[in-house]
Design a protein around this nucleic acid. Structure first.
Lengths: 219, 219
DNA sequence: CAAGAGTGTGACCGACCGGTCACATGACTA
DNA sequence: TAGTCATGTGACCGGTCGGTCACACTCTTG
C-alpha cells in the first residue's frame, strides 16, 4: 500500500504520478518498466517516489487495484439489463460495456491482462487472483443461473463455458481491428470516430456464435 | 539471420545456445531478456555470441522462426483427418495437436504468443505477421470451406468465426489448468501423468460449444 | 527565536545492461 | 618455420536500473 504521505498529496499531483505509472506499465513488462522513467515523466524526485511507495511491486499492485476499481465503476454506469431479460441480451451488453472500457482505457487494459498472462510478473498468481479469476467466477455464476432458468443448454459444462466467454471478452479489443483490417493503435486513437455500426455488427456476430455455434443448418 | 559461423558450430553447441535463449525469452519480455544471462547459461563468451548474432533482435526473430518450424513439424506428424471427414472432427484434432504441442513445448508457446500480444517487442507487427495472422488466415479458409460444403452455417461471418476459433485455440493451454483447478506449471511438469481423459472431455466440451453454442433447448 | 515533524531533492550506490574490441588460440598453408 | 584466417575470449564501454541517504525546505508549536 502507498504511504499516507502519498494520499496527503494534492489530487492533481497524485494523478500526475498515477498517469505516468500507468503509461509506463502499459508499455513495458513489469521487469522492464522503469521507476526512473516514471519519476522523470511525473517530474518528481526519485526520493519522493520512495516516500510514496515501498518499492516497484507496491506501486504495481496499487495500479492493478486502481484499474479494477475504475473498470468496476465504469461498468456500473452502463446500466446493464438484468439477466432475467435474457442471458444473451445481458451478455451482449456486458461485452459491449467491457469493450467500451477497453477502448476508453487501453492502458489499464494492457496492465490488467499483461500480468496474469505472462511470467514476467514475479507474483503472477497474486495478480491472476485479483483479475481474471474473479471474472471467471462471476461468469460461472451467470452461466449457472442461465442453465437453471432454462436459457442455456443443460448439457454444457459451466466451467468450460465461463472460461470461453471470459477469454473471448478479454480478446474482444483485439478482434475489432483485425476484422476491420485496421491497426490497434489507430482504433484507440480514433475511438470517437470509429465505425460504431461495424462494431455493433461484430458484437452481434460474436454473441450469435456463442449462442448457436457455427454448426450448419439453422434457420 | 545468424552468421555462417553460427551454423558452422557443432550441433550440440548450437543447441545449447538455442536452449538457453529459449528459456530466457520464455521467462522474460523481449526488453527484459538478458544476453548476458544467455551467454552465461550457455557457457560461451559474450564476444562469441556477437559473432553468431548481429544483435538481440536477430536472435529473437531467429527463435520465432525456429519455433514456428518446430510447431509446423510437430503438427505435421499428427496425421490430422481431412476437413472432408467433418469440420468439427478436423477442428477437434487440430485443437488437440495444438494443445499437445503447447504442453510439450511450453517455452516455445510462451515466446510465440508473448510477442504479438503485448507492446514490449519493438517490432510487434513483424512478429504478429509471422504468427497469429498466419493462423487466422489459415482458419478463415477452413471456415469458408466448411460453409461451402454446408457443414457450417452460411449465416456466420467467416472473419469473426476464424478469429474466435484461433483465439480459443491459443488459450486452450490456459483452460486446462483452470478447469482442472491445478497450477499451470504443474500441468507442464506432470505432462505425461496428467489426466488425458479429463483433457479429452474438456476438448469435447470445447468443440461442442463452438459447434452448437451454449443456447438452450437442444437434444 | 529554537525545535521538531513532514516532505522534497538529486547525487550516489552497486549491479547489470547491450554491445565492442584487442588479443589469444589453433588449424591450415606456404 | 612464418603467415593467414576463422574462431574464442572476457575486460571494458557508456548507460540505465532499483533503491538509499544526507541534506534542504517549509510549517507548526513553544
Amino acid at each position: 500500500m502507498p504511504s499516507q504521505t502519498f494520499f496527503n498529496l494534492s489530487d492533481v499531483r497524485r494523478q500526475i504520478i498515477i498517469d505516468a505509472a500507468i503509461a509506463e506499465f502499459a508499455n513495458h513488462s513489469y521487469e522492464a518498466a522503469s521507476i526512473s522513467s516514471i519519476v522523470s515523466q511525473a517530474k518528481i524526485a526519485k526520493g519522493s517516489f520512495y516516500q510514496y511507495f515501498e518499492d516497484k511491486q507496491d506501486l504495481y499492485l496499487y495500479l492493478v487495484d486502481w484499474a479494477l476499481e475504475v473498470r468496476r465503476a465504469f461498468i456500473a454506469t452502463a446500466n446493464l439489463p438484468s439477466i432475467q431479460a435474457g442471458f444473451f441480451v445481458y451478455l451482449r451488453a456486458l461485452f459491449q460495456a467491457n469493450l467500451e472500457f477497453q477502448l476508453a482505457n487501453p492502458a489499464f487494459t494492457q496492465i490488467l491482462f499483461r500480468g496474469p498472462h505472462f511470467g514476467d510478473v514475479p507474483f503472477r498468481e497474486e495478480v491472476f487472483r485479483r483479475t481474471k479469476a474473479g471474472s471467471i467466477k462471476f461468469m460461472r455464476q451467470c452461466v449457472q443461473e442461465g442453465i437453471n432458468q432454462g436459457q442455456l443448454s443443460a448439457q454444457i459444462n459451466p466451467d468450460v463455458a465461463a472460461i470461453m466467454i471470459v477469454t473471448l471478452g478479454i480478446e474482444l479489443r483485439r478482434f475489432i481491428p483485425i476484422v476491420l483490417g485496421i491497426d490497434t493503435n489507430q482504433l484507440v486513437k480514433d475511438n470517437p470516430n470509429v465505425d460504431r455500426d461495424a462494431i455493433s455488427k461484430i458484437l452481434d456476430e460474436f454473441v450469435r456464435i456463442l449462442e448457436r455455434g457455427i454448426g450448419g443448418s439453422d434457420d
